[in-house]
Computed example of a mutant assay.
Amino acid sequence: MPPRSSSPRALAVAVWLWVLLPFAYGSYELIRKATQLFTG
């Protein structure tokens, strides 16, 4: 069996980052724009 290039843990970290980074950015933008909407 050939060796795998990445471990399952590295793949899991990469997948979580792929999901969480855009989610975090979107949440930040939502809060920023909602703050502008309600404050002025």
Score class of each variant (00 low, 15 high):
9 R>F: 15
18 W>H: 14
27 S>E: 09
23 F>E: 13
18 W>A: 15
8 P>I: 14
30 L>A: 13
12 A>D: 07
17 L>C: 14
35 T>P: 00
35 T>M: 01
3 P>S: 06
1 M>R: 05
36 Q>G: 04
19 V>Y: 05
22 P>V: 09
20 L>V: 15
37 L>W: 12
23 F>C: 15
16 W>H: 11
7 S>H: 14
36 Q>N: 03
31 I>D: 11
13 V>A: 10
38 F>I: 00
27 S>P: 06
29 E>H: 11
39 T>C: 03
12 A>W: 07
11 L>V: 12
14 A>C: 01
6 S>Y: 00
2 P>M: 01
2 P>E: 03
29 E>L: 12
10 A>T: 09
19 V>L: 15
12 A>Q: 05
12 A>F: 07
4 R>K: 04
12 A>T: 01
13 V>K: 02
30 L>V: 09
2 P>D: 02
5 S>I: 05
14 A>Y: 06
18 W>Y: 13
7 S>L: 12
35 T>F: 02
21 L>C: 14
30 L>N: 10
12 A>C: 04
31 I>G: 10
27 S>A: 09
9 R>D: 13
29 E>F: 14
6 S>T: 10
31 I>P: 11
27 S>C: 08
17 L>Q: 11
20 L>N: 14
38 F>W: 05
39 T>G: 01
32 R>K: 03
20 L>F: 10
6 S>C: 08
8 P>V: 14
25 Y>G: 04
10 A>F: 06
4 R>G: 07
24 A>S: 15
19 V>S: 10
24 A>W: 05
18 W>I: 10
11 L>P: 01
25 Y>P: 00
39 T>V: 04
24 A>I: 05
14 A>Q: 13
16 W>I: 08
28 Y>T: 01
6 S>E: 11
15 V>W: 13
37 L>S: 00
7 S>G: 14
9 R>L: 14
29 E>T: 13
5 S>A: 08
26 G>T: 02
40 G>L: 08
37 L>E: 03
22 P>E: 04
2 P>V: 04
35 T>I: 06
